[in-house]
Computed example of a mutant assay.
Amino acid sequence: MVISKRDVDTSRFETLRLHDKMRELCLLKAEEENFVQTIDTSTAKSKFPCKSRRLAVVRCPGEAFSFDTEVKNPSLRTLLFIECRRWKATSLLFTRHKLMRVLDLSYVDFKGGKVPSSIGKLIHLRYLSLVWTNVTQLPASMRNLKKLLYLNLDVICFSTVLDMPNILKEMRELTFLCLPMSLDDKTKLELGNLVKLETLECFSTKYGRDGSEGYDAAQISLYLY
Rank of each mutant, 00 (worst) to 15 (best):
S4F: 11
K5E: 04
K5P: 03
D7S: 11
V8A: 11
T10E: 09
S11H: 09
R12M: 09
F13K: 13
L16A: 09
L16W: 11
L18G: 10
D20Y: 13
K21W: 04
R23F: 08
L25Q: 08
K29R: 11
A30E: 09
E31K: 15
T38D: 02
D40K: 00
T43V: 14
T43M: 05
A44M: 09
A44G: 11
A44F: 10
K45W: 04
K45D: 13
K45E: 12
P49Y: 01
C50V: 15
R54E: 07
R54D: 07
R59T: 04
C60S: 14
P61D: 05
T69D: 00
V71W: 01
V71L: 07
K72T: 08
N73H: 10
P74Y: 06
L76P: 01
R77K: 14
R77P: 00
L80F: 01
F81I: 00
F81M: 02
F81H: 00
I82L: 04
E83S: 15
R85C: 11
K88H: 11
K88W: 07
A89S: 14
S91T: 10
L92F: 12
F94R: 13
T95K: 15
K98H: 02
M100T: 12
R101A: 10
V102A: 02
D104M: 02
V108W: 00
V108E: 03
V108D: 01
F110T: 07
F110S: 04
G113A: 05
K114A: 04
S118L: 04
I119Q: 04
G120S: 06
L122D: 05
I123D: 01
L125F: 06
L125S: 03
R126L: 15
R126C: 12
L128W: 03
L128Q: 05
L128N: 03
S129R: 07
L130Y: 00
V135D: 07
P139D: 01
P139F: 03
R143E: 14
R143L: 13
N144A: 12
N144L: 07
K147L: 14
L148M: 13
L148W: 12
L149C: 12
Y150P: 05
N152Q: 09
N152T: 06
L153S: 05
L153G: 05
D154V: 12
D154A: 15
C157Q: 10
F158V: 13
D163G: 08
M164Y: 02
P165V: 06
N166L: 14
I167T: 08
L168A: 04
K169R: 13
E170P: 08
R172C: 09
L174E: 04
L174N: 02
T175K: 14
T175P: 04
F176R: 12
C178H: 11
L179R: 10
L179Q: 03
M181R: 12
S182C: 11
L183S: 02
D184V: 07
D185L: 11
K186S: 15
T187K: 08
K188W: 05
E190A: 07
L191D: 01
G192C: 09
N193E: 09
L194C: 09
V195G: 03
K196E: 01
L197D: 02
E198H: 14
T199M: 13
L200E: 00
L200D: 00
C202D: 05
C202N: 14
C202M: 12
F203P: 08
F203E: 00
R209L: 12
G214T: 08
Y215N: 09
Y215G: 05
D216N: 15
D216P: 14
A217E: 06
A218V: 09
